[in-house]
Write a protein that binds this DNA or RNA. Structure first.
Length: 274
DNA sequence: TACCAGGATATGG
DNA sequence: CCATATCATGGT
């Protein structure tokens, strides 16, 4: 359970915690693996209904993709002498997905072209500006803003947080499209990968890379290969011992052997960057 | 100091 | 259609 974004996740009493919405209502939830490392334990702070508790458990299973059989990925990766060592090094590591597609999309747009540290700073500032607060465990927690909350912002407010003008427009306009019904993220669940890419890249500010990140980190699709990604290309260069950064096409060629586990191969390669 | 970051778009040839 | 400039700022 590594590589969790600092902008979103905290450590508390042996649990990893973050805020989520259960039936639209913000809660703090904690999760951890039991001693055997098998069972994922979920703890919802505060008063919850049985329904919300079961919603939380379902959400956390989704976030940690507990239904994915890693051993099948490892068996597949074993045939690739460069990829195989990573599956030993990071054995048991699962992709961590966002619990919410809007959150995932916005965070991905924020991180376009920026180093991850600065992207995390901007994300925290957006949350502080527009998100709800939640009192739990004697502390004040921030909740990622809803599309409605982001839609109400003015571009200048994000510029003041050091978003560039265009990125401020992308994020606020996406939120407004969702609020007025022009963009329905929930409908993406019924689409094939390429259909999702086609739908999302019609939105200003969303290119192929961003759509692929949503498929990966929002929807948990198993066979995504964001071949143009700089981080992935750097990782492929190192792991496959190339003398220069591979092109998108070269990554696609190397990665064609990863199918149907491209997402996990990509994730483990990203992990290898540290 | 210059150049790159887990890009996307606007503009000009 | 392809090449280049632009963006804000932190890291190297």
């Amino acid at each position: 359970m590594l590589q969790l974004e600092k902008s979103t996740y905290r450590e508390l009493n042996g649990y990893v915690v973050r805020t989520v919405r259960l039936s639209k209502e913000p809660f703090l939830i904690g999760f951890r693996y039991d001693e055997g490392g098998q069972q994922l334990q979920v703890d919802v702070k505060g008063q919850v209904t049985d329904e919300q508790l079961s919603e939380a458990e379902q959400l956390v299973r989704h976030m940690f993709s507990t239904d994915v059989d890693l051993s099948q990925f490892y068996r597949h990766a074993a045939e690739d002498c460069h990829l195989a060592p990573l599956t030993n090094q990071f054995a048991g590591v699962r992709m961590v997905r966002d619990p919410d597609l809007f959150e995932c999309l916005v965070k991905t747009v924020i991180s376009q072209q920026l180093n991850l540290a600065f992207a995390g700073t901007l994300t925290k500032r957006l949350i502080a500006l527009a998100g709800d607060t939640l009192e739990a465990e004697g502390k004040t927690w921030r909740v990622f803003p809803t599309p409605e909350q982001v839609a109400k912002l003015r571009y200048e407010q994000l510029q003041q947080l050091q978003f560039n003008r265009r990125k401020a427009e992308y994020i606020i306009d996406i939120a407004r499209k969702i609020v007025d019904g022009a963009l329905d993220l929930d409908s993406l669940w019924n689409m094939a990968d390429e259909e999702v890419v086609a739908t999302l890249t019609r939105v200003r500010g969303v290119g192929r890379w961003t759509a692929e990140c949503l498929l990966l980190f929002g929807m948990g699709r198993p066979d995504l290969l964001p071949a143009a990604d700089i981080g992935l290309r750097n990782a492929v260069r190192r792991v496959y011992k190339l003398d220069r950064q591979p092109t998108e096409t070269e990554v696609r060629n190397i990665g064609s052997a990863w199918s149907p586990w491209s997402s996990y191969a990509t994730f483990y390669l990203w992990e290898s960057l540290g």
